[in-house]
């Protein structure tokens, strides 16, 4: 057991422990904050594994952006502040499948690697990774930029419901009544009442 092993064990314990709390807590906001702890411990593991650039990108994008987005979503969906009891389904199948997946993968990897030891390679600094990305992996990199653009446009289209529905909207001035008394009207409100 070297110092790197001890660090990896400690950070892995923190990551798994906070991961358990993410999927088990009854507070929505606390789940997001435990996710911060989990992702931070993973960034520490990346640092120990000599992946410097990945660690800092993890801190920037995951802890900085993704968790903030998730907390915004918690806020925008008017989540209750305290503990709420209706967050979970009855969980025996989930525990079975999740535990089976985790333990099965762990058994597979333990069987593959036993207690062998490897030397840590050269650190993945920004210089080396940039060299690799912009020489070897430049085509996936460009495709990824197109994918980011597609995700951006898709998110905008999803959250703007008036796009593409103009003609449907213009007819029928009594639609707001159907919105309020949903399902009460036999003609236009019927479909809406059923989907409610």
């Amino acid at each position: 057991m070297t110092g790197a092993d001890v660090l990896l064990l400690a950070l892995g314990a923190v990551a798994v422990g906070s991961g358990v709390l993410v999927v088990a807590t009854k507070h929505l906001v606390r789940a997001g904050l435990y996710l911060v702890v989990c992702l931070g411990a993973l960034a520490g593991m990346y640092l120990v594994l000599t992946a410097e650039l990945v660690a800092w990108v993890q801190v920037l994008i995951y802890v900085g952006a993704v968790v903030v987005l998730l907390l915004f979503a918690v806020m925008l969906t008017r989540a209750p502040i305290g503990a709420s009891d209706d967050l979970d389904r009855p969980g025996w199948p989930a525990a079975l499948v999740g535990g089976g997946t985790g333990l099965g993968l762990a058994a597979l990897l333990v069987d593959a690697y036993r207690w062998t030891s490897v030397e840590l390679p050269d650190p993945g600094t920004a210089e080396r990774l940039g060299d690799q990305i912009f020489r070897t992996w430049v085509l996936p990199f460009e495709v990824l930029s197109v994918l980011l653009l597609a995700a951006l446009v898709g998110a905008i289209v999803l959250s703007r419901p008036d796009i593409g529905r103009r003609e449907v909207d213009r007819d029928g001035s009594a639609r707001p009544d159907a919105d309020r008394a949903r399902g009460g009207r036999p003609g236009t409100g019927g479909e809406g009442g059923r989907s409610r």
Partner: peptide, 18 residues
């Protein structure tokens, strides 16, 4: 460095996610 430690951590995290 024992690679089994981060590997098993990742397996447990994936199981937790599922």
């Amino acid at each position: 460095m024992r690679p089994v430690i981060p590997y098993v951590t990742a397996a447990f995290l994936f199981g937790l996610g599922v």
